[in-house]
Amino acid sequence: MEVRTIKVFTTVDNINLHTQVVDMSMTYGQQFGPTYLDGADVTKIKPHNSHEGKTFYVLPNDDTLRVEAFEYYHTTDPSFLGRYMSALNHTKKWKYPQVNGLTSIKWADNNCYLATALLTLQQIELKFNPPALQDAYYRARAGEAANFCALILAYCNKTVGELGDVRETMSYLFQHANLDSCKRVLNVVCKTCGQQQTTLKGVEAVMYMGTLSYEQFKKGVQIPCTCGKQATKYLVQQESPFVMMSAPPAQYELKHGTFTCASEYTGNYQCGHYKHITSKETLYCIDGALLTKSSEYKGPITDVFYKENSYTTTIK
């Protein structure tokens, strides 16, 4: 009895394709271990004539594949690729409408935090270190965002349907971005203890939790000093293409032309909904596939993004 075979390709990165001759009487799992086709788990399936010449994702289970996976995804987590594939199996079914010149995501599976993050990423200057993220990001900007969303979920250790947080998501993504040249110098002034300067680099240099107003941050924000008295913390120097200011959701007025974009969060910790506000020729609110415009805006804002380049204080 002759062994019926077909020729397929296996890959971990969709760049390096490895030619395989597979036995049609055995499952993919018996031949390769966990195997995925377009995100779908085909591990328990036997090869079919229609699979001839198709590319299958496999887990990096030998040295060659491990090197290829690390170079593309910059992670050695053995569960990463499987999590990416199972997320992709959902995100490829989502709709990605162009809204006001940006790629958004039609609401499904509690994905409003991903839509808000995706919209924000198209408006701030950011370059990702893992080629996987950078490639998928370019495709997302062009309207094909399924891979990018699935990668975000995998890097953030999230599953489809789980509630997510924009600030946490951005923080994970910033860790995989090139923020080497970003720098922030802060000064804390206390009447009792004097003053202390701190220099922050990388992710810490672009994120701040405690106030939404970048102007206020430049002037000074009140913080408790270690001595128990009130101290003032203010920005001395900022070198970065953008800054992200966050605070627990509270009524906040966004003035046209003073910011790049913002995240609105309605609801409580267990259950809520994100919308995205962007400042173009007027203010726009993007909620999944829905767009509304207004000249002014007041609502429960939790993150505001500002364009920056270089700032030095005039406070002496």
Rank of each mutant, 00 (worst) to 15 (best):
P224Q: 12
K127P: 09
A289H: 13
H74R: 11
V206E: 05
E296N: 14
E308T: 12
Y306P: 02
A247D: 01
Y96D: 08
C271W: 15
S246W: 00
D77F: 04
A140K: 05
N14T: 14
G288N: 01
Y57T: 09
T64Q: 10
M24V: 11
A142T: 13
K54V: 09
V185S: 05
I315P: 15
K275T: 11
K44M: 10
P97H: 10
A250L: 05
I223N: 02
C112L: 07
C227D: 01
K44C: 15
Y311T: 08
T64V: 11
V236D: 05
L17C: 15
P131G: 00
K127G: 10
W107T: 06
T75G: 02
V22D: 01
V221I: 14
L200Y: 14
G101F: 00
A145Q: 05
A145T: 01
T226N: 10
Y36V: 08
F259W: 03
L133S: 02
P97K: 10
T226I: 12
Y36D: 09
L37D: 14
I15G: 15
Q31P: 10
M170S: 03
T282P: 03
P248K: 03
Q251N: 06
G220A: 02
Y28I: 05
T198Q: 11
G143H: 00
T260S: 02
P131A: 02
V243T: 00
A142V: 13
R4M: 06
Q98T: 14
F128R: 05
Y311R: 14
L235G: 04
P130E: 05
N178Y: 06
L65N: 00
T313W: 12
F9T: 10
F242Y: 01
V67F: 14
K158Y: 01
D63N: 10
S295R: 13
L179W: 06
N309F: 08
F259Y: 00
N100A: 13
K307T: 10
Y36I: 04
V67E: 11
F9I: 11
T120M: 09
V188H: 10
K218N: 01
Q175L: 06
Y137T: 03
T314W: 11
S263W: 02
T120R: 03
Q123T: 03
T43A: 12
A154S: 09
A140G: 06
V236K: 04
G210Y: 00
P60N: 15
Y265G: 00
V203Y: 15
L102V: 07
S213V: 05
G267Q: 15
G143Q: 11
T19V: 13
G272K: 07
N14D: 11
A231E: 01
H90P: 05
T116P: 06
F148T: 00
T159N: 13
D287N: 02
L17S: 13
A231N: 01
A262T: 00
L119G: 04
T19K: 13
L283E: 13
Y155I: 03
A145Y: 01
K7Q: 12
K127C: 10
L163N: 06
Y274D: 00
L133H: 09
P300Y: 14
Q30I: 12
P300K: 09
Q230I: 14
T103Y: 12
I152V: 06
T159V: 09
Y36W: 13
A262C: 00
L81W: 13
E253S: 13
T91H: 05
D62P: 06
E215P: 00
N16V: 01
L212V: 11
S294T: 12
Q197S: 11
S50Y: 12
Q251A: 09
G143L: 04
Y57N: 08
Q175F: 03
N61L: 12
V22R: 03
T192F: 08
L121K: 03
T64D: 15
C227L: 03
T192Q: 08
S279F: 05
T5Y: 15
F56C: 09
L283Y: 10
N157S: 07
C112M: 05
G29R: 15
A154W: 08
V206M: 01
F259M: 06
P248D: 15
I286L: 09
S104P: 05
T10L: 14
K127Q: 15
G39H: 08
D62S: 15
Q98P: 12
E264G: 01
Y113L: 11
A146K: 05
F305K: 04
H51M: 08
L65K: 11
Y96F: 14
D63S: 10
D180G: 11
T159S: 11
T91Y: 08
S50L: 13
T302K: 01
K183N: 07
P249N: 01
A262W: 01
D23M: 11
L254E: 07
V99C: 05
K229L: 12
V99A: 01
I315W: 15
Y311I: 06
S240K: 02
Q98S: 12
T292N: 12
R167V: 01
H256G: 08
L119Q: 01
A117H: 03
S50G: 12
I277M: 00
I223H: 05
I105E: 03
H18A: 05
S79W: 09
E264C: 05
A231T: 02
E296M: 06
S246D: 01
R66T: 08
V304S: 01
Y72A: 13
L102S: 08
T199K: 10
S294G: 07
S86E: 15
L212Y: 10
D109F: 03
Q230K: 10
G161T: 00
V160I: 10
K293R: 09
V12D: 03
A205I: 01
P47S: 03
Q134R: 12
E68W: 10
F174P: 05
K219Y: 05
A132N: 01
Q216C: 08
T27A: 13
G33I: 08
A146W: 07
D13N: 00
V203M: 10
P249G: 00
V12P: 05
H256R: 13
F148P: 05
N187R: 13
N178A: 10
S295F: 01
T169S: 07
V67M: 15
A132F: 03
R139A: 13
G220W: 00
Y214I: 08
V160G: 02
K44Q: 14
H18Q: 09
V3D: 12
R139K: 12
L200V: 10
G272H: 05
F9R: 11
L114W: 00
Y113W: 15
G82C: 14
V42E: 06
P97D: 13
A108P: 09
N61I: 08
F9K: 14
K54A: 14
I152S: 04
V166I: 03
T260F: 00
E308S: 07
T169H: 11
T292R: 08
G257P: 02
G299Y: 05
E308I: 10
T55F: 04
F217K: 04
S25F: 13
Y311A: 11
H51D: 12
P78C: 07
F80P: 06
E144Q: 14
W94P: 10
Y265Q: 04
R4A: 13
T10W: 12
K93E: 12
L59R: 08
D109R: 03
N100C: 15
G101A: 06
C156T: 07
S86R: 12
V206W: 04
Y208L: 05
K229R: 11
V188L: 07
F56T: 09
T169Q: 03
R66E: 07
G288R: 03
Y155S: 00
R184W: 13
R139N: 10
L133F: 00
K106T: 05
T11G: 08
K95L: 13
T120Y: 02
L173C: 05
P34R: 12
Y57K: 03
K106V: 13
G101Y: 03
W107M: 00
Q20A: 11
A142H: 14
E204V: 07
K106A: 15
L59N: 14
I301P: 07
D180T: 11
Q122E: 01
Y284C: 14
T198N: 08
S79P: 15
E168R: 15
Q31D: 12
L119E: 00
E253K: 02
V221R: 04
N129Y: 07
R83F: 04
N49Y: 13
G82W: 06
A154P: 04
D23C: 09
T55L: 07
S181A: 13
F242K: 01
C225Y: 01
T232H: 09
I124L: 14
Q30G: 13
E204N: 08
P34I: 00
Q197V: 12
V58A: 07
K54D: 10
V21Y: 14
T10V: 14
D77V: 02
P130Y: 02
V236Y: 06
K191C: 13
P224V: 14
V3W: 14
